[in-house]
Simulated assay, not measured.
Amino acid sequence: MKYWKYSGMLLSATGIIHIIVAITQEWNIYKELFFDGLINSIGDNLQKALSFWFFIIGIILIVFGQTLQYYINKEQMPAPLFLGYSLFVFSIVGCFIVPLSGFWLFIPQALIIIFAKRKHNKLA
Rank of each mutant, 00 (worst) to 15 (best):
M1P: 08
K2Y: 07
W4T: 00
Y6C: 02
G8L: 06
G8S: 12
G8Y: 14
M9T: 13
L10W: 14
G15C: 13
I16K: 04
H18E: 05
H18N: 13
I19L: 00
I20R: 01
V21D: 10
I23P: 00
W27A: 07
K31Y: 03
L33A: 08
L33E: 04
F34M: 11
F34T: 11
F34D: 06
F35P: 02
G37M: 01
G37H: 07
L38M: 13
L38W: 11
I39M: 09
N40Q: 11
I42K: 04
D44F: 14
N45K: 02
Q47S: 11
A49M: 08
A49R: 02
L50G: 05
S51D: 01
W53V: 08
F54E: 04
F55Y: 10
F55A: 06
I56V: 11
V63E: 10
Q66L: 14
T67R: 09
Q69I: 01
Q76M: 00
Q76G: 01
M77T: 03
M77S: 06
A79Y: 00
F82Q: 06
L83I: 12
G84E: 01
S86N: 12
V89N: 05
V89M: 14
F90P: 13
F90D: 08
I92S: 06
I92R: 09
I92N: 04
V93Q: 05
C95E: 11
C95G: 13
F96A: 05
V98D: 09
L100V: 07
S101Q: 02
G102Y: 15
F103E: 07
I107A: 08
I107F: 10
Q109N: 14
A110T: 07
L111M: 15
L111I: 06
I112Q: 10
I112N: 05
K117S: 00
R118D: 09
R118G: 04
N121W: 05
K122P: 15
K122M: 15
L123W: 06
L123A: 10
A124F: 14
